[in-house]
Design a protein around this nucleic acid. Structure first.
Lengths: 207, 207, 207, 207
DNA sequence: AATGAATGAGTTTTCATTCAT
DNA sequence: TATGAATGAAAACTCATTCAT
């Protein structure tokens, strides 16, 4: 259907404005979650912080949950982007190099926005969105399992699923705990040592 | 350990009647957390479920936080009891046997009350009690590190702290994820395999 | 004058609809204070009487205190209006005429809304607003002192501050007690006599 | 009716104990009123401060009002004691000396326990007890009127009731305001000047 | 008589959400 | 489409008072 050239730009402008409003709302939600915590993140507060009326908030999001979900999604996209890129890079590399890279990437991913990551991990009632978190974890696991499958000959384990689960879980947990709870105590050198040893842990097991 | 006034019980209910009231409140809190989640756990609901007046609740606890803190403490006591017992048993045993036992115990500990454990892990705004959760984790870590120290000759790692951190984190994460998110998919045989492989992962690294 | 955050209105309701809401709330507060007393003036009751939701009440006032403060302010405005006008009128008049007028005005001021005046005087916990009441008293005192200063030649007292304090306090107290506690017993004639005698009391002293 | 000598002492002891409990409760109420204000003076708090169980409080007082009333009564007794004594002393003295003494006594009476006096004046909802306060004021007024009657020849006023009312009200108000609101600014010399001038005010009028 | 655990009506207050303008 | 005033269910919490021990 032909569009009037007179309305097209306006619509476009309107869309751009909408997008900006939505972004401002998600950003405001993330900022409040980080600085004040989940309990303080009321819709009125979010709207105000975003510089948007409460009415507009409900124009774009059906409720508070949807806002938090959007923040989670956005964060997951960023994390998965890093993870996917790393696994693509690593696809053809030998086991040790690959694992080392993955450990480093896990740490890097947790460092994208550690405070937000922590809030999302710790204080979001996983109402309904749990599936999404799970889905996200399973995607990462599947990518890793796929790598192992492609390098089946380098790997000495009976059950590939189990091995992938063990390694992915261990790497994630080590990165998570180190970045979120031990960052203060860990120097750069200590982080390097951590990468070394975690790599040894995983590679020693897989070979 | 210092407690925030918000999480410190108000009285130390010595008499029998009041002890029963306090227990009923903690139990009701745990039950509601498991069945309905944190958000639904209002003080009025807790009191009602406990068969106690709202006034009595506030006689013994300054607020919802304190009740949740009491539930966390009670759960941690139970978990630590299992962990301490296992480490005492294992103190003089060789590495592989010890690690196998510890992996099994980690799973067992997560099975004490998996739903409660999950709620406590996932949806409790860690207001103030985070230190306690941390303290709890650190105690378990210290116990494990202590075992490694006693078996220094069996262990081939440069940094004992780092090794203890890696192994404890990995074991905990594997047990946690398996019990809380994969129980449905895992048969008893699969759990046995999981124990085998997790043991291999850790022992292979330590030796 | 600095206000406590507890007594400061939350918004300055500019729009017509909200101005009406705010007025209804203040009016309802005053009405309940008069008919039921301070203790019965709960926020829910005020909102209900104002025909406004409890949520709207908290949109404009941080709590009960602020509402009472608004009532006090409104009443003080009205009283001071009368007092200021009278003193302006009287500025160039001779002592006796001026004092007589002031006594009459003090009585008149207490009659603006005697029941409200009494409640405000007697049963309002003067949380924070005491300064305002004091400020109000001091303004009236300053106005009177200023009159005396302008008529220094008619006045035979050593200390003008002291004289102003004595006379203003006496006039206020006589008007207050007569209107609020003796109105039943006092006919119009008796009030006229009261004005005569109070004038004699003050003028006799000042000359 | 004869009393058993065996029970008499016990009863006496019990009565003494009761009296001590009652006193402790009244004293605790007064102390809390002064230090924390009326709103904070809950029965539980009063009982605790008095070192008495809440049950015992209700054994001796039907409710919170009764406690506050007892504090008011006790304070009034003390004040009236001073006033009665002064008027007795002054009965045969000439006007000026008498008035001077009464002004001094009014100040003295307000200084018995200024903070308590202020709380009782300002923040006690006068539920029911207002009559008592009124009765108290009227008694003081009657005593003063009686003095004037006895000294009718020294006094040049048409209406003795009116004159008594004017003078008593003025004296009370000046003493009240000076002691409770201006104490900080008033030196001993200033208080002496206040007494001089207040005496002049009243005597100038009466003669 | 004394105790203090228990009660629950009543209060303050928040916040997700709606809807008239 | 945007606004923000208004809503009211529901949550946290207090405190005067009762009553079993």
């Amino acid at each position: 259907m032909a569009r009037s050239p007179l309305t097209e730009p306006r619509k476009h402008a309107a869309q751009k404005r909408s997008r900006a409003t939505v972004d401002a709302l998600i950003e405001a939600t993330a900022r409040i979650l980080v600085t004040e915590g989940f309990e303080k993140a009321s819709t009125n507060r979010i709207a105000e912080t975003a510089g948007v009326s409460i009415g507009s908030l409900y124009q774009y999001f059906p409720g508070k949950e949807a806002l938090v979900a959007a923040v989670i999604d956005r964060h997951h996209q960023e994390v998965m982007q890093v993870v996917r890129t790393a696994l693509a890079e690593v696809a053809s590399q030998p086991l040790e190099k690959a694992v080392r890279k993955l450990v480093a990437v896990a740490i890097e991913a947790h460092r994208i926005d550690p405070k937000l990551h922590r809030v999302l991990t710790e204080q979001i009632p996983r109402t309904g969105r749990l599936e999404n978190v799970e889905a996200f974890n399973r995607e990462a696991l599947a990518l890793f399992r796929n790598y192992l499958e492609q390098h089946r000959d380098e790997v000495r384990v009976a059950d590939l699923d189990l091995a992938a689960f063990l390694c992915a879980t261990a790497i994630e947990a080590v990165a998570h705990t180190a970045v979120l709870y031990r960052s203060d105590e860990l120097t750069d050198a200590a982080f390097a040592a951590l990468v070394d040893e975690a790599t040894r842990l995983v590679v020693g097991y897989l070979k």
